[in-house]
Amino acid sequence: MQHTSWHWRLFKGICLALISLFFLFPILWVLLMSFQTNEDILRVPPSPFFTPTLDNYRALIAGELTGAGSTLKIAYMKNIWNSFVLSACSVLLSLLLGVPAAYAFARYRFRLGENIAFTLLSFRFAPPLLVLLPLLLYFQDLGLYDTYFGLIWVYQLITLPLILWIVRGYFEDVSPDIEHAYRIDGHSWLRSFLKIAVPLARPGIAAAALLAFIFAWNNFVFALILGSSDVQPVTVGALAFITASGIQYGQIAAGLVLSVIPTFVLALVMQRYLVEGLSLGAVKG
C-alpha cells in the first residue's frame, strides 16, 4: 500500500508541521525571548520582530544581573556546573550499583528478591516532600547538608530504581545459554558478566542512564531544601532571576536555553546506542 501522490504527501507534511509547531512552540518562544530585552518581552501585544541582543547571555556568563539601576551577583554558570556534577555522579554511582543488582535480579532467584526489587521501585511512589524534613534533620546532624556527596546520595532515590528496573528487563532478554556457553569456554563468572551480559544489555543501560540523567537534572525540591547556593543546580538557581526589582524574563529564557544544552547534547550522543538497541533486536544469536 503506497500513497505517493503529491497531495497526499503535501497533506502529511502540513500535518507533521502543525503537530511539530504545537509541541515546539513554547521552546521556540523561549529561544526568541532569550534574545530580547525585558521591555521587548513585556510589550503588549507581543511581536516576533525585535532587535536581537546578547545582553542576557552576557549577564549570565559574567554573573552580574543588572536591573532597575542595581547590580546583583548571580552564580548561574556555577549552577550549571553543579547540575552537571550532581547528575553525572548520581548516574555513574547508580550504574555502578544498579547494573550488577539488575543482573542479580534478572538471573538469580533468592530469598525476598522480588520484595527488595519492589521496595526499590517504591521509592519512586512516595512524594519527595514526605521524606524531605526528616532527611534535612539527619543531613544537618551528619554533616551532609550542603555537600555534593549528600545530594548525590539523595539523588539515588531517583536514579537507582530507574536504572535497576530498566536494565533488569534487558538482562532478562539475553539468553542465559549465551552466558553458559561463555563459562564453558573457560571464562570466569566476572568475565562473562563484563564481556557478554553487559555488552548485550548496553542499549538498555544507555537508555536507562540517559533517562536517569534527565530525571536527576530536572530535580528541584531535593536540592532546594538540602543544599545552599554552593551546590545548587540550575533548577534552583533560576529562582535568583525573581528579584526584588522584578522578574528578569530575558535572563530566565537565556538560562533555560543554556540549561537545556547539556541534556540535549547527551541525548544526541546516546541516540546511537538507542538505535543500536533497536537494530540488534532480539539477541538470540
Partner: peptide, 20 residues
C-alpha cells in the same frame, strides 16, 4: 566445579553464539 573448570566443549541446540 564451575563450568569453566571442567575443560569441556559444548554445542547448544540454539547455537548460543555471542551476537556482538
Amino acid at each position: 566445579l564451575a563450568p569453566d573448570a571442567r575443560g569441556i566443549g559444548m554445542a547448544f541446540q540454539n547455537f548460543a553464539l555471542y551476537p556482538h
